[in-house]
Nucleic acid binder design. Sequence first.
DNA 1: ATTTTCGGTTGCAAGATGAAACCAGAAATG
DNA 2: CATTTCTGGTTTCATCTTGCAACCGAAAAT
Lengths: 164, 164
Amino acid sequence: MVARTRFDADECPVARSVDAIGDWWSLLIVRDAFDGSRRFGEFQRSLGVAKNILTARLRTLVDSGVLQSVPASDGSAYREYVLTPKGKALFPVIVALRQWGEQNFFAPGEPHSELVDRRQGHRLRALEVLSADGRRLNPDDTTVHKVSAQCPEPEPDAGTPPCR
Amino acid sequence: MVARTRFDADECPVARSVDAIGDWWSLLIVRDAFDGSRRFGEFQRSLGVAKNILTARLRTLVDSGVLQSVPASDGSAYREYVLTPKGKALFPVIVALRQWGEQNFFAPGEPHSELVDRRQGHRLRALEVLSADGRRLNPDDTTVHKVSAQCPEPEPDAGTPPCR
DNA sequence: ATTTTCGGTTGCAAGATGAAACCAGAAATG
DNA sequence: CATTTCTGGTTTCATCTTGCAACCGAAAAT
């Protein structure tokens, strides 16, 4: 067996996310979906991706609950692919990638697409990683804990011993 | 020519970011780097990736300026891979992926690793996409503008006509 | 009725991936 | 100092994935 390594059972949430959307096309499909693309042909033309690849990616995105296949909004017999709530929750991921790209891969003044606040037309504020009490955190200010078999809602009268 | 499609000349910053780190392993290598991994063997054991693949990924990450190869910190003759400022700027991306994974791929109470504030041990605040003036933005509140050949610093007396 | 568009599927060539074997230099051990 | 072990790779090969182009049926347009 030499199949692609999967991370969908990894204990790290980053790994599971990467497993779901961490290939070359999926994130760009999601980006286009945020940008208003809905139809197979729209994605295909926008991305320049081969149709068989697009077919496969759309299928996995639907299977993993990021996209949903719905009847076309214009009354035609075709179907459209729209973001589910789970897919829309990827917004910060896309914005983070966009801001990183803007800051690191473009020469000053080089043309690029930009995400702006629809109401005021201004660029967005840079994402900030914050602590629970609102302090801005750098990578060094954080650590990874292992949370093992947690009790989500402690039941007062339950006979089971409390976690930790 | 059937080589892998590249996005490094795309006008969309998301595409360029994906081109740099959008494969299965690169993001996980970066995650481990945030988590303190530095040595080849550390990454290899932590990720379970084949060594040839790891070699290739580390090389491209170094080439793209995300990682830097430095002499080992313990005085040995080996080298270590550490995040550059550009690599550290991926922190919001990793955090966004982590939060998305936590919220969408784990059953309540299922064990997982968690990123916490080192000072207080609390979980981080969920990332928020904000407008310039601090309003929280949903995907629908934003649009993509094309910024074409912008003038970064308008020179008052320049003969060139102003942008737009 | 015919043509065009849409949304795919199929087949093939080439590139990327994964596993395992191999290897040189550094470090540890005796 | 000699030997062994560890580290950080490279090489090889089988398999999987990707990209391209050809093809195709149903829907839409003409």
